[in-house]
Design a protein around this nucleic acid. Structure first.
Lengths: 200, 200
DNA sequence: GACATAATAGGAACACGTTCCACTTCGTCC
DNA sequence: GGACGAAGTGGAACGTGTTCCTATTATGTC
């Protein structure tokens, strides 16, 4: 009993909280992946994560926070994947397009999930500013890394260009998830924008 | 009575519908201007427009349609205003920045309204594609007009540049209405982007 | 081990977008 | 001017995000 207890104590504590948080984000991910934004219903997330509704709201104060946090986790994964291998391409433009296409392809492979996460990102207000900022930084960092691999002291122009590309990427993604443009148009538009911005 | 009837027939008919539509959009505008997206409640709009809830939904099938239509009306006004006078500035970049700043200043003068309309625009799905497309075309046309006043045969690059600037503008607006960046940052970012894209 | 505090469960209740229905009024056609 | 379909009214009802409350369980302290 004491052993069981000590084990329990080890497994629970803040580990229990990490576990709950993970279960919640996993449930969010799964529901979003199956049915998009509308399918991520707070009661459904709570049920699937085996957590009470009140607990869900204790961990994530709103549906938007929940989805943006899930988006953040996805971006961290994508960024980690990108860091594993050097980015192919001889010019900054080629490398940036590679990163954009790879990331976009990943997102478009799971349209419902992407719809849910993009919607949430676009609908967030200032109370989610912190989470949004993390995602924005990750995106900018992915892009500057593609532009100048290994370089740490970036010029203001580099950062500005990365931000503009990020803006275009977001807009294109929104147009795509809302069914206003096709995947091909999205890709072409992003490629255009990169060539306009990185003429080297 | 027959005179009254004929008058009534003239005043009502589709004129009554135009009037209802206008009252609804006016109510939307006023509520949005006072309290933003959340304050535009369908029951409140219906009350203020002196229209039944079912009638409101007959004219605009969702809150998003309603707000995007209101946004469209605002853009038409802004575009008409711009067409009145020639755009000052010696270079394309100067003229584009003038247009962006003027339009943005107009929007930022009514933050709640802008928040409501931008939210709706970003949250729209494919069922609102038609209305969104109108707004997008207006924006692109305003920007190409600023780049090349009076020119009608634009190159693909011109249109692509206008679209990228539009994307940046939207992203900046979203960041601003969601409290993630200040008006000054928004302006600076847009100015940066224009200079990156229009180096003439 | 007993207790104080915090976290969770379970679920009722509320708000607002949306749908639906029964009834009335309007516009049109004979 | 009577009949008929379309449009409008008024309001109930439903779904889902969010809040709130009480009972129960876990955690940390003496």
């Amino acid at each position: 009993m004491s052993i069981a207890n000590s084990l329990t104590v080890d497994d629970l504590g803040s580990a229990a909280q990490r576990d709950r948080r993970k279960r919640i984000l996993d449930a969010t991910y799964e529901l979003a992946s199956e049915g998009g934004f509308d399918a991520v219903q707070m009661r459904a997330v709570a049920d699937q994560a085996e957590v009470a509704l009140g607990t869900l709201y204790r961990y994530f104060p709103s549906k938007i926070h929940l989805l943006v946090s899930a988006l953040g986790r996805e971006f961290e994964r994508a960024e980690a994947l990108l860091r594993e291998k050097p980015i192919p391409g001889d010019t900054a433009a080629e490398r940036v397009i590679f990163v954009l296409k790879k990331t976009t392809r990943g997102l478009q492979g799971d349209p419902h999930l992407t719809e849910a996460l993009t919607r949430a990102f676009m609908f967030a207000d200032s109370s989610v500013a912190h989470e949004i900022h993390s995602v924005g930084m990750l995106m900018t960092s992915m892009l500057t890394h593609a532009m100048h691999p290994g370089v740490t002291d970036l010029t203001e122009d580099d950062v500005a260009i990365a931000r503009v590309i990020g803006d275009v990427w977001l807009s294109a993604l929104v147009a795509w998830v809302t069914g206003r443009s096709t995947a091909a148009e999205t890709g072409a538009h992003m490629e255009n924008a990169v060539h306009l911005l990185l003429r080297d």
